[in-house]
Design a protein around this nucleic acid. Structure first.
Lengths: 233, 233
DNA sequence: CCAATAGTGTCTTTTAGACAGTATCAC
DNA sequence: GTGATACTGTCTAAAAGACACTATTGG
């Protein structure tokens, strides 16, 4: 017979938190939310909170639910980052947070956000200069270095592209994430190998020579390469 | 003012579990423990359990504590794998487990374990054929694929080497993890680039030509390469 | 035509794979 | 010596870096 009541035990506080990235006009942004509850009421922090064990089917779903509540849109990519745990990170007691990093196209959320005071995208370097709630500074730092790594060996940055985009759009996103320029030719070779983009019968006419428009193929897994791109020192 | 009592909320069960790997006589083993509590009493499962929020300082420390309790030895390497969460994975209710993968030299634990009936190393393929507690089957599968990936681009397999070892020992460990043979020359090039081994003034005389003995340098970070080794299909 | 951005061709560089060759031991 | 395992030299192959080249537009 199973006899177990969680209320008989002293258990940690368990939460989820997400670092939602988006690229816009030359800067890599993360979503911050102004807290209107204790602890750290009034401070900026990551979107997240408790699992609703009666309605959520997983921690991932809880994290996505929190992002949807704040932005009105689903992230295009979301993965576990790391679990941070300590008796000190929350004044209420021993706390564990499962953090995620996620990506979304800026265009998918920009309009909704402009009307909400307490939710905003902010340049990641600016965010890291602020006094944030909990250990969210550390979480953002780890998420940043994770997506920078991913940018070197995967197509994951493609998940913050809008529906239609050019190769230059994609190159810009990677360069903004890395903070360094890369070889266009190398990128194109990788995109071809990944087979993740499909060309549309459309061109973008903003520059001089029109640029081929692409979209992400449907139902495809993020491609991982065998090698990292090399960053020139 | 902070008012919060975790007992006022319905919260998930939170545990840690570890997949402890070790290589011995041609097989990759994982540590299994026979459960003597419900749920899944009598079934084999991964070493793990609840955080002791009064004594543990982190989830990592809780995971290590559980491994030490079962084996008497500290793992040489331990990293977060993934957090598994669902309302179904535990009959007691919504449950979250933070899983780790870890490595230890077989020699460091073999003698203690032989005397304990309820704790054993078992070949990972055998383990995956058993009916294990919870979703531990899935956790082991993910841990296996993670260390196989790590074997392709890092020196992490070195953490299941004994204090003194030869290059052939290291090659064998990687081949056992991958289930495939690799080029000795490629391995040596990588070992040199990593600068993680230091040669001793000793040789092993078991084969024909004596083999240089090495040890892991102290206080060194696991090295990661820019490329994967390629597995011939 | 020119300027600017899009896109290609191709040579170099890097590092792993393949594998033949040499070294050192027990017998 | 032979056989076995340890170790090295070196050619080839694969994929990224560098960068010059061509292509296509607006003006």
């Amino acid at each position: 017979m199973i006899t177990y009541d969680i209320k008989d035990y002293r258990v940690p506080i368990f939460t989820v938190d997400s670092v939602l990235f988006s690229v816009d006009s030359g800067s890599l942004n993360v979503l911050l939310v102004k807290r209107n509850n204790e602890p750290f009421k009034g401070k900026w922090g990551l979107p997240g909170g408790f699992i609703d064990i009666d309605n959520d089917v997983s921690a991932e779903q809880a994290a996505i639910r929190k992002i949807v509540e704040k932005t009105g849109a689903q992230p295009q990519y979301l993965q576990q980052l790391h679990t941070f745990s300590s008796p000190k990170r929350d004044p209420r007691g021993f706390s564990v947070t499962l953090s995620f990093y996620a990506m979304i196209a800026y265009q998918a959320v920009a309009s909704q956000l402009s009307s909400i005071e307490a939710v905003k995208f902010i340049d990641v370097d600016q965010a890291l200069k602020k006094k944030l709630a909990f250990d969210h500074h550390q979480i953002i730092k780890m998420a940043l270095s994770r997506i920078q790594q991913k940018a070197l060996y995967s197509m994951v940055p493609a998940y913050c592209l809008p529906n239609e985009f050019t190769m230059t759009d994609y190159k810009n996103i990677i360069e903004i994430i890395l903070g360094q320029s890369i070889q266009r030719k190398s990128l194109i070779r990788r995109v071809e190998a990944s087979d993740m983009f499909e060309p549309l019968n459309k061109f973008e006419h903003s520059g001089r020579r029109p640029a081929q428009l692409y979209r992400l193929k449907k139902g495809i897994e993020p491609y991982h390469f065998q090698r990292n791109m090399t960053l020139s020192v």
